[in-house]
Design a protein around this nucleic acid. Structure first.
Lengths: 262, 262
DNA sequence: TGCAGCTGTGAAAATCCTGTGAACGCAGGC
DNA sequence: GCCTGCGTTCACAGGATTTTCACAGCTGCA
């Protein structure tokens, strides 16, 4: 299976011999590797867009555990492999419970380290990554190749974040996505408690959608949970519909049936 | 970071001592474990809806590698942990490249095995909820991916708590759940003495259920104990009621409640 | 039959959550 | 350096949801 993906790896270790040997091999395998001096703030790790982190806890001293915890908490998608000297079962278990994905004991063969890093990175793959084909929902046309959405040929003028959010929501059409999950996907790291960015962007999206496609509702709020994308025609204009008590939630299979109802 | 999820694990190993000890611990942790005799066809593994597989390659003999490859190829979402006696780097690398997620050398501490299984299962979580099969009970359709329940295509407009309660009850269909247990599950912490929240939410649920599905009774009260979810058609209309009105907590088989005829 | 303990109800009170508008800071382009 | 676009953060208002209460109706038991 596989390793044809190029892996972006960061290494925090001061064993220059090991790092060098590993570096040679990763380079030969086409990975992008970067060696870091010590406890880099998680925020900077975010910016590196890594697939995996190889970490020798012993170089971090007292802060090793809290650092590990912070990194894993903030970057749930990052593969974290601890590679350290002799250890106890309790230490290994602790690291794994804190969020580490694997633990190798030094001395270890670089080939095994790489295989484990690969295994750990593999998890990011296999997401239903959209194919380039333009997606049409409601009056909306989403074009991944242009990073834009259109309605009736006119662009919504979405910014990058707005577009990514829309794409994510639309890709999960019908399902409710929780804020944390949305944030995690679009922003790439864990949402801080109390962060309202997702709400703000949903508002911006709704504004732009409404402006161009006033006859449709696309994004539905699920109180206490998150948002759901499901285009449905607005029925507000003509006030003839006293019929079904609208509860804002479409039926399982999509929702146009309300119109045809009964 | 929370391993409070219940993990479904299968074990292929013939080391009865290890399996027994592990079984005790996994049970204590609330996991569902199943021990398999040998190389089970991948198709059957699929049906088990597992989170992870713990596998001793040595019990499979010659077919070990091809079996591993087939399983990993067929179940990319399954966490596969190999746990075997002494091995070479080449073997470990081979297994990992074939798709295994981790490799532990025996003898190993069951706690570490569990921690690694957890770590491996953690990866699957968080994104495309694969298990989203709609559950149908009575005329009710419960959709986890929408945080909603429907009957005849119409939403019950459940709030988050209501939905979680319903989901819990329905998941324990037929069994009586005590208030404390319900509270613990849904609210996430211990119920304060005298708290009536569960009762209140059961009422709300019953109201919404009755409104949309008047012909069925879903939630039954067990005096002094708790509640039981068990959909049964109301038989109110025709008052022939010949047999003795059965009582609330009778046999496992469904019970017909005395109903509001009067 | 009467008592004590539970459960069902309805509504008020307390909390929590989301929508919104605006200010702020940052980076790129002119 | 100044301007503009974009993303982030805040605070507040309006609702939606959850808790809490008090009381009525039941259930089980002596």
């Amino acid at each position: 299976m596989s390793s044809n993906q190029t892996i972006r790896l960061a290494v925090i270790d001061d064993d220059s011999g090991f790092v060098t040997v590993l570096g040679k091999r990763t380079e030969a395998a086409g990975w992008q590797q970067r060696v870091l001096g010590g406890a880099i703030p998680p925020e900077e790790l975010v910016a590196m867009k890594l697939n995996a982190l190889l970490l020798d806890l012993s170089v971090l001293g007292d802060e090793a555990w809290s650092y590990l915890e912070r990194v894993c908490g903030m970057l749930p998608d990052l593969g974290v492999v601890v590679c350290t000297g002799p250890s106890t079962v309790a230490q290994r278990v602790r690291a794994l419970r804190l969020g580490a994905d694997d633990w190798i004991s030094k001395p270890c063969h670089p080939e095994e380290a790489m295989a484990r890093i690969e295994a750990v990175s593999r998890r990011r793959r296999g997401r239903p990554q959209v194919d380039a084909g333009p997606v049409v929902v409601g009056e909306l046309e989403i074009r991944a190749d242009r990073f834009q959405a259109f309605v009736g040929g006119g662009s919504l003028a979405l910014t990058r974040r707005e577009f990514e959010l829309l794409q994510l929501l639309a890709g999960a059409e019908g399902r409710v996505l929780e804020r944390e999950a949305i944030y995690q996907q679009v922003w790439g790291y864990a949402m801080a408690h109390g962060d309202r960015s997702v709400d703000v962007f949903v508002r911006k999206l709704r504004q732009k959608l409404e402006k161009r496609s006033p006859a449709w509702h696309y994004i539905h709020t699920h109180f206490g949970v998150g948002y759901r994308f499901d285009p449905e025609p607005v029925e507000g204009d003509e006030a003839l519909a006293p019929s079904a008590p609208e509860d804002g939630d479409a039926a399982p299979g999509h929702s146009l049936e309300r119109l045809a109802a009964s």
